[in-house]
Design a protein around this nucleic acid. Structure first.
Lengths: 114, 114
DNA sequence: AGTAAGCTTGCACACTGACGCAAACATGCA
DNA sequence: TGCATGTTTGCGTCAGTGTGCAAGCTTACT
């Protein structure tokens, strides 16, 4: 199959190649925030999370908002405090599905040429 | 655990949160190239891949180089033609490992509070 | 009402990166 | 050697985005 043809047919992999998700993950400060949250294993406030990276408050707030929009975190408000938490299940399933889709594209040895 | 403490300890998840990889994947044109390559299931030349996306071939060349550097593709040269192919195994394992690491951070119900 | 804590938003700035064009480079063929 | 094919690289442009500061907003407390 030619790439031009392949690009027009929608394979199972397209569903999991989410540009927004990867873009959200492709920034060091955001990765640090995710790492912190994951290692904490609980919901954390913006103020708490600001202490773990060397940028301004407002920047952390924006990053967290973006990560929530990308489906990486969930947000809950409690009084004037905003808590963010990793969407463990969602992310785990998303990466497993992606791995499976990639694996499925891999040509098997000895397979008939389509 | 506080985020500030968590940020300083190196958990199993840090190993798999590769900013370079995610950054490479976080661009629509590059995702399209990967999708094409994966669905083709074989190595493709730069010229072939240029036909599947609406940008100049010099741009495609740069994208492919970047994806190779990020560990997404492998490159082989045959005469004056350059072939790129998806690193199926490598990517599959990377995403599975990431999924497992995230899952491992998830607090279990009824677990003792550390 | 007044004040403080927690967070978001507007603004300006610097930097990155995607892009197209043209030139250069490498290889194959006549 | 001369030319065509396939790819990379240099350069200028332009949009996007990460950042800090300051102001504004919401909630809690006195």
């Amino acid at each position: 199959m030619k790439p031009q043809e392949a690009s027009q047919c929608c394979g199972p992999i397209d569903e999991f190649l989410d540009a927004e998700l990867f873009k959200a993950l492709g920034e060091p400060t955001r990765l640090k925030l995710i790492s912190c949250l994951a290692k904490c294993g609980r919901a954390c406030s913006v103020t708490e999370l600001t202490e773990c990276c060397a940028v301004d408050f407002s920047v952390v707030s924006r990053h967290l908002g973006l990560l929530e929009k990308a489906g990486v975190l969930t947000v809950t408000k409690q009084g004037r405090t905003v808590f963010y938490e990793v969407r463990y299940k969602h992310l785990t399933e998303a990466f497993r599905a992606l791995a499976k889709a990639i694996e499925g594209c891999r040509p098997k040895r000895g397979a008939a040429k389509a």
